[in-house]
Design a protein around this nucleic acid. Structure first.
Lengths: 170, 170
DNA sequence: CTCAGATGATACTAAATAGATTCATATAAA
DNA sequence: TTTATATGAATCTATTTAGTATCATCTGAG
């Protein structure tokens, strides 16, 4: 339900509450009982999404596990929350609370890539923040590509990992 | 002006026409004279954006130039229209006219990458459409990263090209 | 079956917004 | 300076929407 609402809010940001309810198959009244205002709904979804994704990042053990194993878990864990991830990208700019969470994720990923660079696993001619952004870009972009039917769902994680680690060149 | 409106529409999709006008520094009346309805405004921006980006793609000569040179031009040409690109991503699902244009771009890029694969320039263990999506993801994601101050503007094209061709692994 | 809790349909009011107009002012070219 | 054009500020009406409440119906547990 939360995931469906997140997706509806992303697909049609200008939809009225009535349209949102219809999009997820409930009545306007039920949506109202869930969250009295649109603001509450967004707040609640942001909180839900940040919680889940923080769990996904922590479960990857970026600070201690071998870099390549941690990277793989990071990718697969995040793919399990596609709708929430795409929701956050579009909505956390409106909720100042989430800004600190984003900064925390950036810091965790930056530190992870720095560690991997020192361990000789990631290249050093791209700054660690750039590596973070490259990975996030691939995650978001290919999730969307799957939604549009351009990449098969089964191969998603594989494509992302390969593109991130080795690129498209021979 | 068009670029500013595109950006405002992306940053705050639920803004009223009055807020949009204020965001780009004009009055509601002037915005009304430019486009009488919100629908017209979106239509016009979609048309403007598709035209410009089609030009950018054609200028890259994907069908004939050496693959690596064409790729570089494709990246730099597109970076010149960041706001329009991000606008299109969010709005062309609402304008059926643009769907055909998108299909055309996909086809052009897919064919380009296929040609590059046959020429031994791009790896063949990722399908050509996947390569298209990877490049587009990097373009969009790193444009956004620059907006958030995570990647320096001057190094944008370089980072994208390197990430795309060689990835983050050593 | 019976009943409590959940849901849907509907209606209502206040607020926000879209679309359109008018008039005054500013700007720049002739 | 004069004149045409563009812009802004303010106003107005009709429509849409948010937020709220009411009542009927459905569903499942006991």
């Amino acid at each position: 339900m939360m995931a469906a609402l997140a997706r509806a809010l992303v697909d049609r940001p200008r939809a009225s509450l009535q349209e949102l309810a219809a999009a997820v198959g409930i009545s306007k009244a039920t949506l109202y009982r869930l969250c009295r205002t649109r603001g509450h709904l967004v707040e609640r979804l942001v909180h839900h999404a940040t919680t889940r994704i923080t769990e996904a990042i922590e479960a990857a053990r970026l600070d201690a596990a071998p870099p390549l194993a941690a990277l793989e878990r990071l990718i697969t864990n995040n793919l399990e929350h596609r709708e929430l991830t795409t929701f956050l990208i579009r909505y956390w700019q409106h909720t100042p609370t989430a800004a600190g969470v984003e900064a925390g994720w950036d810091a965790a990923l930056d530190a992870f890539f720095l560690r991997g660079q020192r361990a000789g696993v990631f290249r050093i001619d791209l700054a660690a923040p750039a590596l973070t952004e490259i990975l996030v870009a691939l995650l978001l972009g290919l999730i969307d590509a799957e939604r549009r039917g351009r990449v098969a769902r089964a191969s998603l994680a594989e494509v992302i990992e390969r593109a991130f680690l080795r690129g498209a060149g021979v």
